[in-house]
Nucleic acid binder design. Structure first.
Lengths: 157, 157
DNA sequence: TCGAACATTCTGTAAATACCGAACGATCAG
DNA sequence: CTGATCGTTCGGTATTTACAGAATGTTCGA
């Protein structure tokens, strides 16, 4: 059981707020919050509903949403005909990776913008060259970064 | 003048879409898009309105919003009583920096979560230790990263 | 002191979003 | 086959958001 104490409620809401800032639905953050401090780690949809006092439909929808985001996964069910979910190992890394991928997308857009300024003065291009540089740097630097980070967390286990 | 050609419109809309994915209002992205390819770099609110065919109120609001985000800045006005805006040098770096700061906020939340699991089995803590590690790593690694990146772009100028 | 040319702020509206409850569909025990 | 127990999906509602247009405030030239 989880979510009875005030500290747990507070934690769950902080995760929800964080998720909201990241562009995820707040309810998704709450579900995630439960699965970050639950004992045991695997919880059924009904468990989560009880804990959050939220409707089955919301929890079901958000659980599948979080699976798609790579943050949680379905756990082997102890009881037949019941879905258990748990936080997915490496979920945070995967989350960061996807975020960085979106950001790196600006790299190509900046290139297209530069071609629009073709032939014009260099001073006009510096804006987009900055974007190009920053996000190309993100793109390349992060691949190595994630590899190192992945190895590091794999080693710790 | 900007935004007449199809390529420019397309670029602006791509920036708008990117901004939307980053959680900024789409119209803010459009204003930013104009200021990334405008010639000259500094444009008045009216110029931007004309280019986007958007209302003054939206453009005014979004321009001030982007100033707050550190992505654009007010330019010294060539004509009195008129606000000129331009892309802010280092804006993308600042943008990334703030994003990373939000992400690093999870570092503290994870710590608070860990204290909730105090005394419980270590296997329960690994979820939050992962969060702790990833976002502490983000927090520290990025400070150095941004410094290097800042120096690099300063050198290029 | 007007009035023109701005920018900002307020108000309204249309669209998107978050959430719930109910209906529905599937699966298993009896 | 029937009912109980799940999960999913559908429809509705309330809140939020993204804009536009009108009203307001400000500065400057005549």
């Amino acid at each position: 059981m989880v979510g009875k104490e005030i500290g747990e409620r507070h934690f769950i809401e902080d995760i929800a707020l964080f998720c909201e800032q990241m562009g995820l639905p707040r309810m998704a953050g709450r579900v995630l919050g439960v699965l970050l401090i639950s004992d045991p780690p695997s919880q059924s949809l009904n468990d989560i509903c009880d804990c959050l006092q939220a409707s089955k439909s919301s929890v079901s929808t958000m659980a599948r949403f979080l699976v798609g985001e790579g943050l949680i996964e379905q756990a082997p069910c102890l009881v037949p005909r019941r879905d258990y979910f748990r936080f997915r190992t490496g979920g945070w890394l995967e989350f960061m990776r996807r975020r960085m991928e979106v950001m790196a997308g600006l790299h190509d857009i900046a290139d297209r913008g530069l071609s629009l300024l073709d032939g014009k003065d260099d001073s006009l291009k510096s804006r987009l060259e900055e974007a190009h540089d920053v996000f190309e740097f993100v793109d390349t630097e992060f691949r190595g970064w994630f590899e190192r980070m992945g190895q590091r967390s794999r080693k710790q286990r």
